[in-house]
Design a binder for these strands. Structure first.
Lengths: 225, 225
DNA sequence: CTGCAAGATTGCAGAACCTGCAAGTATTCC
DNA sequence: GGAATACTTGCAGGTTCTGCAATCTTGCAG
């Protein structure tokens, strides 16, 4: 067995190297080379995992395919899971944030939309995105781990909700508002687990607007019974 | 780093041995010895983890303290996480199940109550329960893993909800009802994550009725805004 | 109570993930 | 061009976990 460590590998973040988004053609020669090497490793990782299955894709094999040392692999990604899970949810854009804060709509639905956007639309490399999706469909364990990266949005989204409350001039005890915000995030994350499960089961590639709308509808139905 | 593999170690279930609930004084000499040995291992594990921290509690150390071989350890518990996470949520009792199915109350609240009961009240050994609680408070990583064991109730609880729907003579498309049930479980689990987080942060030992009631109140507030 | 069969434990070898450290190599900057 | 800096690598070692074969214990039948 020993399938998949769903939790954050907790091995800390990658150690050194150009940390923040080495987005290809930024900076000097060095930075470019590193970005390119990382991309090569990621491609190798998914290619091998799609061939042999997640658990049989050893980091030794990945390193050999990408032509780097194992040590460098761990410098880059911190752990085996690191390559596969990617950088986690993206930061929310300012416009999305503003829209959310000022929306008059139902809190849970808006939240789900926001989460959906931070999770889905942020892989710079389309190939990688597709392969990750494919792997998630093929390996339930991996899917589970992928879904659980969602939990990392909690803190930032609680803050967002607090802003929204402020915009609505809601008053009340600090602690009450905070609790309410936290519960909202917890519920939204729960609902999104459902959405992603669906997405990984279905044949379609992307999460579609319909799926999200249906989920919001289900939430409404459930919370009123 | 390398703190905690939150996901199921996925290493399969323990291999051999008297599998099902070796509840101490059941069966012959052999079964009793095994139950006793397992308990000793569990105690050793938590004692050491509370002394040195979860990640520094090596299974070697645990085995030495409990006086068994490492190999036997893995036969018993399947993985390091196995000892600490325990057997996971208990099976729901028939009376609880019936009560849930026939309750006229709000679905989400009832569900949360049910989950709370399957999670909390099933450790045969009070010491172990207390130590697990203490460790969860001390190690956020462990707490996370513990909370995520909740996910395993999904399947059984979906079935429960379907029964409840049937008892209420709800009709509709099979698939719709199933989706609704799944969403309900997802939301309830989300809400319970909140509850457990709270429980592990606070000073109090047990999850109190108040905490649950407050959580249900929060859910209502959130779902109506 | 003796001895056999089934079941449990153990040691060993080894795979796989991951870390610290020191030495080597490449880039950058002056 | 050469020093300073940053990255890569190899190596040794730690930890979790598995398969296998040998050994020991228990349960049981005669």
């Amino acid at each position: 067995m020993t399938e998949f460590r769903t939790t954050a590998p907790t091995s800390g973040a990658p150690t050194l190297s150009a940390q923040e988004g080495d987005d290809a053609a930024s900076g000097g020669l060095r930075a470019r080379k590193i970005a390119q090497a990382k991309l090569a490793v990621e491609h190798a990782a998914f290619t091998i995992a799609l061939e042999r299955g997640y658990e049989h894709a050893t980091v030794d094999a990945i390193c050999e395919a990408a032509d780097i040392s194992q040590r460098t692999f761990f410098n880059y990604f911190g752990s085996k899971d690191g390559v596969f899970l990617g950088r986690g949810p993206a930061q929310i854009t300012d416009t999305d944030a503003r829209e959310f804060v000022e929306s008059p709509g139902p809190l849970l639905g808006d939240l789900m939309a926001v989460i959906s956007r931070t999770i889905v639309d942020h892989e710079h490399d389309a190939d990688l995105f597709a392969m990750r999706q494919k792997l998630a469909k093929r390996s339930p364990e991996f899917a589970k781990a992928l879904v659980s990266t969602m939990n990392s949005v909690e803190e930032s989204h609680v803050a967002l909700i607090r802003e929204r409350f402020a915009a609505q001039h809601r008053q009340g005890d600090e602690k009450d508002l905070d609790d309410e915000a936290r519960m909202a995030v917890s519920l939204a994350i729960g609902a999104m687990r459902f959405v992603f499960r669906r997405a990984f089961d279905s044949k379609t590639e992307r999460i579609r607007r319909e799926t999200l709308d249906r989920a919001i509808d289900l939430v409404n139905r459930v919370t009123t019974s």
